[in-house]
Design a protein around this nucleic acid. Structure first.
Lengths: 223, 223
DNA sequence: GAAATGAGAGCGAACATTCGCTCGTCAGGG
DNA sequence: CCCTGACGAGCGAATGTTCGCTCTCATTTC
């Protein structure tokens, strides 16, 4: 009790079992559960999927599964967090964008493509609706949005500073609308509905170009 | 058995009870259940809300409730259908729009305002995610979208015919993107997040004007 | 080097609870 | 006296979670 030093020396050492560390093995199992859970959640929703379904999907018993996650809620939270991190990588393109329009279009297209390929549009919709009642998920979703908004903000601010926004719109509004647009398109998984990516890009570019590089005739007229 | 004629003569007659028809009373009860169910669904989601919660909310016993709806599923379907009809009224403004941009902006703003006032953004999100696994709801949602798309289509088609769309975009793509944008903004309930309606309108108008009335400089450049 | 130790991993029956739903009962108006 | 509407206890099934058990091994002890 008084001297845990000896324990640390032996226990903290990464013990190898069958060629892989205990921690590695554990991470691997956690990953297995998360993948199974994601499949179940996409299929049946957070509330609709049962622990039994997840257990069957990953070939584990309930008892084993509960060694890795303390509750179903924790699995949901982990899935959301992972998806958030996964999404965020799409928006690295913002950093080296030359213009606001180019950057936003590139970011949106990256996100659309990613969501489509991963087949996680349904998961996205699930997260969005669950965030209306689950505080943990709400925080995750809101935090995610804020991170992305902070990536977009400089681009938009630059456009504003250059006077490229003709009808004056507050940056907060601009960011909120832009993110909502992106969310709407991502959640609908347009590529899955047969809409070609290039055409989505063309339409997006036209929309954003109109807003961020307006000309006197094209925009700025009153309602 | 052989002669149901006499039954019809007496039963089809609208009997009065306490000053209201039996059918009226029934409709009233159905409405009471639907309102209670909507409140519960917004609070806990379709799957999360229990029949007991709904019963408590509308002050009915399970037995009584099941006289009006054969299942929970039927209540969910009825809520979705009602919400769909309710939404659709917003888009009447499309009919007498003078320009594509004006019409679309007016329609979107009507929808945003309606959704916000009714507080049904959460219900909308719920429907969207549930439509990914429930066929009945999927049909309702898809049908709803198609009805709206058919209202928008003439406006967009007119703009195309007049050559107002510079980079050529197929009308199917255009419709899909426009509806996704509207969905994204409606589902986020921006007014509830402190974004003023007028600013949303300005931003929307700038976006749509850029796409539907592009100028050579503003849009149409390659990626 | 064989036996004992102990901790982590996994199993699956069983837990209390809650679910959607049914049914026997009964009040009250026509 | 019948019929409609309402009640609410209760059904079986399913839920998320627990717990006692076995097994596997690396470590320690003899």
């Amino acid at each position: 009790m008084e001297q845990g030093v000896f324990f640390e020396a032996t226990q903290a050492e990464p013990l190898e079992v069958n060629g892989q560390t205990r921690a590695e093995r554990r991470d691997q199992q956690v990953q297995r559960i998360l993948e199974a859970a994601q499949a179940c959640f996409i299929r049946s929703g957070f509330q609709g999927a049962s622990m039994q379904q997840i257990c069957t999907e990953c070939g584990m018993s309930p008892g084993a599964l509960y060694r890795y996650f303390p509750s179903k809620e924790a699995i949901v939270a982990a899935i959301c967090e992972a998806d958030r991190q996964d999404d965020l990588t799409c928006f690295g393109v913002f950093r080296d964008a030359t213009s606001a329009v180019d950057g936003l279009v590139a970011g949106a297209m990256a996100h659309i493509t990613h969501t489509h390929k991963k087949g996680s549009a349904a998961l996205f919709a699930e997260m969005r609706s669950e965030s209306n009642r689950n505080d943990t998920i709400r925080n995750t979703v809101d935090g995610h949005k804020q991170e992305i908004a902070q990536l977009i903000a400089p681009l938009v601010q630059r456009a504003i500073d250059r006077g490229e926004i003709d009808p004056p719109i507050e940056i907060q509004t601009l960011l909120a609308v832009l993110m909502s647009v992106g969310e709407g398109i991502a959640i609908n998984d347009l590529p899955a509905r047969g809409i070609p990516l290039e055409q989505i890009e063309t339409a997006l570019r036209a929309m954003l170009a109109g807003m961020l590089r307006p000309t006197k005739e094209g925009a700025g007229e009153s309602a």
